[in-house]
Simulated assay, not measured.
Amino acid sequence: MDLLLWRHAEAVDGTPDLTRALTERGQKQARKVAQWLTDNRPKHLRVLVSPALRTRQTASAFADDFEIVPALAPDKGVADILAATGWPEGRGAALLVGHQPALGQLAALLLSGHEADWTIKKGSLWWFTNRVRDGETQTVLRTVVPPDLL
């Protein structure tokens, strides 16, 4: 299974949190990463998105067809996210458009085996693959794509 973590692009400050929209810069960040994804996407990709407006706007730069998943909301944690994706046993690939701190904590868990407060930069994409080698399950970080380097 492939698991792609895409932190929403830059959004305006304010409340209520779920209605915060992308800034002009955030829209540009989303378009850049979306173009990279279009060129490099894995096959059989499901797009799962937090209910927040900023995540839906980020995902919309890439796909019109995505699932809004309450388990990806800003107040949810790593266990909620993993349950929603089926990682690592699932098939195909899942692109999650979500929030800090949960995405950073999930990245830390996947790479180190422990949740930690890692930061995924706004608009950035982290792509993980799960595989079995010599009977051992491994998580591989395939790439990190920050919008400011595209």
Rank of each mutant, 00 (worst) to 15 (best):
P70Q: 05
A116S: 15
W118A: 15
V97M: 04
W118P: 05
V78M: 03
L96Y: 05
G86M: 03
P88N: 01
W126G: 03
W127C: 03
Q105I: 05
H99R: 10
F128S: 12
S112V: 10
K121V: 01
R131K: 12
L111H: 00
D117R: 14
L82T: 02
R131C: 10
R91K: 14
G135W: 09
I68E: 15
F128M: 11
G90E: 07
A108Y: 06
I81A: 11
E136K: 14
S124L: 04
A108L: 06
A83K: 10
W127N: 08
V69L: 10
W127D: 01
L125C: 09
A108E: 05
W126Q: 08
P74K: 00
P101Q: 04
L96D: 07
G113H: 07
G98I: 02
L111P: 04
V78Q: 03
G86A: 07
I120T: 10
R91S: 15
A79S: 12
A79D: 15
A116C: 11
V132G: 01
G98S: 01
I81W: 04
L110V: 08
A108D: 01
A84T: 11
V78D: 06
P70W: 09
V78R: 05
G77E: 13
A116H: 11
E136Q: 14
A102S: 14
P101S: 09
I120S: 12
L103K: 01
P70Y: 07
L110D: 10
P101A: 06
E89H: 10
A108S: 15
N130F: 13
S112H: 05
I68Q: 15
T129V: 04
G90W: 02
G86I: 02
A107S: 14
V132H: 09
H114D: 13
P88G: 07
D134V: 12
N130T: 13
L110M: 13
L72P: 08
L95P: 00
S124H: 00
A79I: 05
G77P: 06
D75T: 12
E67M: 12
L106H: 06
G90I: 06
T129Y: 01
N130Y: 15
V132T: 11
L110G: 11
R133P: 05
G98N: 00
Q100Y: 03
L96A: 10
R133D: 13
R131G: 11
T85W: 08
T119V: 15
I120H: 09
T85A: 02
P70L: 09
D75H: 13
S112T: 15
A83Q: 10
W127H: 14
L82N: 00
W87S: 01
A108F: 06
T119P: 08
G135M: 13
